[in-house]
Amino acid sequence: MVSQNGKHETYTTDFLTYDVEKAAFFDHPAIDALVSSIVAMGSEVWSAQRRIKVLESVLTSQGISLEKVNQYKPSAEEEKAWRVQRDQFIKRVYGSLEKTGEARTQYGAGMDSLRQGD
């Protein structure tokens, strides 16, 4: 197979999909979605905290006081771009809530005949 842009040989083949995206663990899918959102939120928050730590280390190593960060006023262009990124962030974190109306099946359904390792 070649890549989507036709430029590269991919050395890939067809594969067998396994979809657990709609697996249900709770009585109502909204709860599943909420739990996923909470995990995603943690990922985003920690990523941001780590990035801030990196930035502060870089700034102080360059002799820039962190007080300048506290006093900084974003430009109009920055505000506009950051709003787009904020909306992307919200979609990532809360997007799973949109799927609460979709039908789900209990995870592991139909697997009763699976070996149990014995």
Binding site: W46, S47, R50, R51, V54
Partner: peptide
């Protein structure tokens, strides 16, 4: 990038 690196750091800890 640092953002995805931070996310993966979280997923490892989680």
């Amino acid at each position: 990038n640092a953002d995805v690196a931070g996310q993966m750091d979280f997923h490892a800890g989680f």
